[in-house]
Design a protein around this nucleic acid. Structure first.
Lengths: 247, 247
DNA sequence: CAAATAGTGTCTGTAAGACACTATCAG
DNA sequence: CTGATAGTGTCTTACAGACACTATTTG
């Protein structure tokens, strides 16, 4: 174990990080996007042991040389797999146990990202054979997930569903410019129920996190719709009240 | 690095966890309690390098032999330092960077606990010379905190203050039996402002997470107060609306 | 004109805030 | 009785839900 040292300097000079047995630590990402009016999550087919051939969340080990902090690791992984540089991303939760990885005690810092799938170029990186967008609905039945990734995805989903109720989070699943009807559709999709148009619009306007794109409208065979974009200074707004589910 | 292996079994048989360079990973706890009508946090004076003599959050390395998962590590640490076995505890957030620990890249899973200080027996454990409750107000000026623990405590405080607004969380800072006035005081203390008694009581009753202790009242030189306890099946209630701060 | 979607106005319901009121004890 | 704190009633306010209404385009 550790030797005795008189001073902080002396201690650090003689310190060897491998004197401790530490768990395997990684960073994993739950990346959500919208495709064909459905929520999808990015999965990688593992090309290496362990769990070779199973589907897993993108992620991997911290690169102690180039990653300044955990967020840097998460952003680097996101960039490597999708090419996206500036998404909405937040830390989800840590998951660690003796049994989640057959190699032994392991822990992961799970992240949670929302991106617009339009500007994604999927890159099957090193150590994986394929990267695909999987619909979230019926995920566990559709694919064989590695490690505890089913639990991590479920936790991320709960976070997303919870935050829809009282934040502006879902805007980050849309392309940079969108109409209020587009936005309402996203909310309805995640909530799994219809919401009232009038109440929704009042709420969004009150939140004041969108700005109309001057003079820009979407045209169809109906009244044209004003196009909005996110106010860059208000990436996430918390409402004072949750959207109450009707009884 | 890694050798080639044909099967999952073959891979695991030849796998050596130390082939990877992994960051130092630990678990740290921000333990809040109430003493003398003020929020306090538990700090340990470090008896070993690094940061010997500075004050730090209780915590330490994962014991891969006895800890089944991260929660087990956190609970074990809490028990070792305070003797408390069943507190309110939740994971706060991960903190990891190349610079937060002078020994090198390190990461920690920070936890967040609320306990009743009455049933705590502070235990200055191994590797520390003293354990004290420090008032949260003016903490950074009062003590020299090790590592990035000032940031972790600040994050925990934000979480606590945020959750006061829309959950029943603060009940866990009280002794098992308390009056509604006691509870209101705790809310006011964390919010840093007065709240209306009538509105507060209506809200708490609506939340339905307390039960009156039959026939038990607190007597003083005034009308006696009904004593309540937490309904064990409702440890944390989310309200539909935040307590709106008056303008 | 009809069809379609965009966007608004108005009423109602719910729960929080303000604040005055009553209740019940010790002394 | 007074003083103190416990606990309630009532009015107002803020905002979500329901839903009907108007607005603006294409064809």
């Amino acid at each position: 174990m550790q030797k005795k040292a008189a001073s902080e300097q002396e201690f650090l000079r003689t310190y060897n990080i491998h004197d401790f047995d530490v768990p395997l630590t990684s960073v994993d990402l739950v990346i959500f996007t919208l495709r064909d009016q459905a929520l999808h999550v990015l999965l990688i087919e593992r090309g290496e042991h362990p769990s070779k051939g199973k589907w897993a969340l993108p992620g991997g080990f911290i690169d102690m040389r180039q990653d300044a902090d955990l967020d840097a690791t998460a952003l680097r992984k996101l960039r490597e797999k999708t090419g996206v540089a500036a998404p909405y991303i937040e830390q989800l939760q840590g998951f660690g146990s003796a049994t989640r990885d057959p190699r032994g005690w392991s822990a992961t810092f799970a992240y949670f990202a929302l991106i617009d799938s339009a500007d994604v170029q999927l890159v099957p990186g090193s150590g994986s054979t394929a990267a695909v967008w999987q619909p979230v609905a019926g995920l566990s039945e559709a694919v064989d997930l590695a490690f505890d990734h089913a639990v991590i995805i479920e936790t991320a989903l709960q976070r997303l569903r919870s935050k829809v109720e009282y934040t502006s989070l879902p805007v980050h699943l849309l392309a940079p410019e969108f109409t209020l009807s587009d936005l309402q559709q996203v909310f309805e999709l995640i909530l799994g129920r219809q919401v009232d148009k009038s109440a929704f619009r009042k709420r969004i306007k009150e939140g004041d996190f969108l700005e109309p794109v001057a003079g820009k409208q979407r045209h169809g065979s109906n009244r044209p719709a004003q196009i909005y974009r996110i106010r860059q200074d208000r990436p996430l707004v918390y409402f004072n009240r949750a959207m109450a589910a009707p009884i």
